[in-house]
Design a protein around this nucleic acid. Structure first.
Lengths: 204, 204
DNA sequence: ACGTTGATGGAACGATCGTTCAGGCGGCTA
DNA sequence: TAGCCGCCTGAACGATCGTTCCATCAACGT
C-alpha cells in the first residue's frame, strides 16, 4: 500500500528481508506486503536478487558520503577523525538498521558481482578505520598496544548497533553516536596531543 | 564420510549451515556432504529444524560451563571477573565459530520453543556481563561513564571474533583471548583497587 | 477511431523443497 | 532356521519456490 509501485515494493522487501532473511522470504511475501501482484514486481525489478542489490547498494553509497562529510569537518587530529567515522557509522547503523542487518548477516546470498562490490566497500570501510588508527598510533596520540584488535573492536561495536537499536526509544541518535565516540576513543587509548604547558617526553 | 552416521551428519550440517545459512541449505546438501542418503538423516534426526537445534544447543551449554569454570578461578575483583568471561567468550567464539555465526545470525529460523530457549541463554549471557560491570562501577574500579554501552561494546567485540577468526592462523586462541581481555578492561576503564605497596594518590 | 506504451493481474511452468513410505541388508538372539 | 531390529536406501508425495507468458486496462498522441 504505502507509496506507489517501485517504492512500495522496495519498502516491503527491506522489511521482509531485514526481519526474516533473504532466503527465508519468498517474492510472494514481498508482493503481498507491498500490496501488488507478482507480475508488478517483475515489471520494476528483474528478480529476487535485483531487489537485494537495490537495497544493499541504495544505502551503501549514503554511508560513504556521510563519512566523507564528517571527515571534512574534522581536523588533522586522528582523535577527531576517528570520532568522525564512528559518528557516521553509528548514525548509519541506527538509521538504516534493516539494510544494515541485511548486509551484515546475508552477504552469502549475494551474486558473484554483488559480492565483489560488497567486498570492495567493506575493504574501503575497514581501511578508513585502519589508516586513522595507525596514524594515531604513529603520532603517539593513540596508545593502544593492539591497534588491529582495537580497530576490529570499534567496528564491531558500531555495527552491533543495528542489532539492538529501535527508533521508538526516547533517546536521540545523536546522543547515542556521541557516547560511542567516547567509547571508541577510550578503546584506542586516546591521549590528546602534547600540551604546550609541559615539555613533551621523548617517545620511548 | 568423516565419522559415522550421527556425527558425520552433524558435522556436515554445521559446515553447510555455518557457511551458507539455514534457509539456503537443503537437507539434500547436508546428506550429500555427510555421504549418507536422505532417509539416513531422518533416521537420526526428526527433520531440518532438529539439526539446527542439535547444533545450537550442543555447543550452547559448553559456553556456560566454560564461563563458570573461568569465574571460579577469578576472585572478588570485577576486573578479574570480567577478564574471566571475556576469555571464555572469545575462546568459545573462536573454537566454535561455525555454531557461533549460525546462532548469532540465524536465530530467525528457529522454532518457537527453540527461540525461547535461545532467548533465555542470551539473557543469562548478557546478565552475566551486566552484573559484573555494574559491580565494578559501584566499587569504583570501572570508571566508564557509560556502563550499558560499554557492556554492549564488550559483547559485540567478543562475538565478532566468530566472523573473522580462522584457525589456520599462526597465533594461538589463548593469545587472542588475552588481548581481548586487555581491550575489554580498557573499555570499562578499569583502575585496579588501591595497592598496598604505595600510598594511593587522591584522584584528580 | 486507432495504435502504442506502461502498469498490472492471473495462470502456469519446471525445479526444488521438506518429508514420508515401503522395503532391503546384516547381525543378533532364540 | 526364523524373527527381530538398527541402519540405510530409492522413489515418491504435496507444497512452494523463482520465473515466464499472455491478457487486460487506462492514458495519450495522431
Amino acid at each position: 500500500m504505502r507509496g506507489t509501485g517501485r517504492q512500495a515494493i522496495l519498502d516491503a522487501a527491506r522489511e521482509e528481508f531485514g526481519e526474516r532473511g533473504y532466503a527465508a522470504v519468498s517474492i510472494r511475501d514481498i508482493a503481498r506486503r507491498a500490496g501488488v501482484s507478482l507480475s508488478a514486481m517483475y515489471h520494476y525489478y528483474t528478480g529476487k536478487q535485483d531487489l537485494l542489490h537495490a537495497l544493499v547498494n541504495g544505502s551503501g553509497q549514503a554511508y560513504f558520503d556521510s563519512c566523507r562529510k564528517e571527515l571534512e569537518s574534522a581536523g588533522d587530529d586522528p582523535g577527531e577523525q576517528l570520532a568522525a567515522v564512528v559518528r557516521a557509522t553509528v548514525r548509519y547503523r541506527a538509521e538504516y538498521r534493516l539494510e544494515s542487518s541485511l548486509t551484515l548477516a546475508e552477504w552469502r546470498s549475494m551474486s558473484e558481482e554483488q559480492l565483489e562490490e560488497f567486498r570492495g566497500r567493506q575493504f574501503d570501510g575497514t581501511r578508513m578505520f585502519k589508516e586513522i588508527i595507525e596514524d594515531g598510533v604513529d603520532q603517539g596520540v593513540f596508545r593502544t598496544p593492539h591497534p588491529q584488535d582495537a580497530r576490529r573492536g570499534v567496528i564491531a561495536m558500531c555495527n552491533a548497533v543495528a542489532q539492538w537499536y529501535r527508533e521508538s526509544g526516547e533517546e536521540s541518535v545523536d546522543d547515542l553516536a556521541e557516547r560511542y565516540v567516547e567509547l571508541a576513543l577510550v578503546l584506542v587509548e586516546y591521549r590528546p596531543a602534547a600540551r604546550r604547558s609541559r615539555p613533551a617526553k621523548s617517545s620511548s
